[in-house]
């Protein structure tokens, strides 16, 4: 009997100990000045999609790769001068907004479409979009579906609470068509539902569909995307409202990748470009001027971002270019001079 009491006591003791050990996990001091908090922590916390090949997905070894993952790295390069000082936090669609609101992550680069509703009611600020896309549908080739109108009465797989979910409701009701949604939070389960034939179509941002087709299906040629883009989905990074300083930094990092491509400063030639006589290049790379210091980071912030991660083109081609599993036309995502809508504000 005595022993039983002792066992109980030791249980209590170990529990206390366990709680103590677990709670010493580093607490982020975030006192309105996000940049200071990031520097004090020694790493940037970046909220990414748990598994979206092309944008952000861990490989078998747990290393994150993707377009949005690279933007996280670029931010780390700007803040620390070291693109590896970033910790990726996978957030489900349910956790993405609470995640940024509560300070679990410093920035959200998680396939979030910028909308006014989210901007004004979620306490977020959106950076300039880094990827323009729209709702698309992936269908089975043998289903005979050729266009949106063929989907009348179809079963469609989609993620809960996504803008896709709302777009489809509007699209179908505008055309007087009906559909049955299958809504699943877990992206892998959602894709499996489509692949195994539970749904006639998988609805997602069009940019995400080639990744699904290439990686999640056994025979990619059995699946195709419906022609056309059915909504505006400007995918942008998001930060909390109330820290203009940090917002500026994220915004100008995005612009630096745009402007870098526009001015022909790429990962490959950035070192030579340091000698460029072009005053705009000199200002951007921090050879002259003090814009970096005024933003609160080192003078060579844009140089570090482009050197370690690349300009927009470098990043794009790395994940969506020819030879990658997911080849995507640049389409709207070209420089304004090339007919796209990427328009970086002048860095000067």
């Amino acid at each position: 009997m005595k022993d039983l009491t002792k066992v109980f006591h030791s249980g209590v003791a170990s529990a206390t100990l366990a709680v103590m050990l677990l709670s010493v996990a580093p607490a982020a001091a975030e006192s309105g000045d996000t940049i200071k908090a990031i520097i004090a922590r020694g790493e940037l916390l970046c909220g990414v999609h748990p598994s979206r090949p092309g944008f952000a997905a861990p490989d078998d070894k747990g290393n994150w790769a993707g377009f949005e993952a690279d933007y996280c790295r670029a931010l780390a390069a700007v803040v620390f001068g070291d693109a590896t000082k970033v910790r990726f936090v996978a957030l489900s669609s349910q956790q993405r907004f609470p995640g940024i609101q509560s300070g679990e992550v410093d920035v959200l680069a998680r396939n979030v479409s910028a909308t006014m509703g989210r901007d004004v009611s979620l306490g977020l600020n959106f950076t300039p979009p880094i990827f323009y896309t729209g709702t698309g549908f992936l269908v089975h080739v043998d289903s005979g579906i050729e266009k949106l109108e063929d989907l009348d009465g179809a079963t469609i797989c989609m993620a809960p609470g996504s803008t896709t979910e709302q777009n489809i409701a509007s699209l179908f009701s505008a055309r007087g068509m009906s559909y049955t949604p299958i809504v699943i939070e877990d992206n892998k389960q959602l894709v499996a539902n489509y692949v195994e034939g539970r749904c006639d179509a998988l609805a997602k941002d069009k940019a995400a569909l080639p990744g699904v087709r290439a990686i999640d299906t056994e025979n990619p040629e059995e699946h195709k995307m419906l022609p056309g883009i059915f909504s505006k989905e400007p995918l942008a990074m998001a930060v909390r409202q109330g820290d203009d300083h940090w917002y500026d930094l994220v915004k100008w990092t995005v612009y630096a990748t745009f402007v870098g491509e526009e001015m022909g400063v790429s990962q490959a030639n950035v070192d030579e470009m340091l000698q460029s006589p072009d005053p705009d290049v000199q200002i951007m790379l921090g050879v002259t001027g003090d814009l970096g210091e005024k933003m609160g980071v080192s003078q060579d912030w844009a140089y570090q971002a482009i050197k370690q991660v690349g300009n927009y083109e470098d990043i794009y081609l790395r994940h969506f270019g020819p030879g990658t599993p997911i080849e995507l036309d640049r389409d709207l995502n070209q420089q304004w001079v090339d007919g796209g809508i990427l328009y970086g504000f002048p860095i000067k």
Binding site: S23, A28, A29, E30, S102, G103, E104
Partner: peptide
């Protein structure tokens, strides 16, 4: 679990954070 993951951080004063795994446990 929803509370632990999504809501609880909002109940803490600004700047304080509790490890997510600990919250869930």
């Amino acid at each position: 679990l929803f509370v632990a993951v999504n809501v609880f951080p909002l109940f803490l004063p600004q700047g304080m954070e509790v490890n997510k795994l600990l919250r869930i446990t």
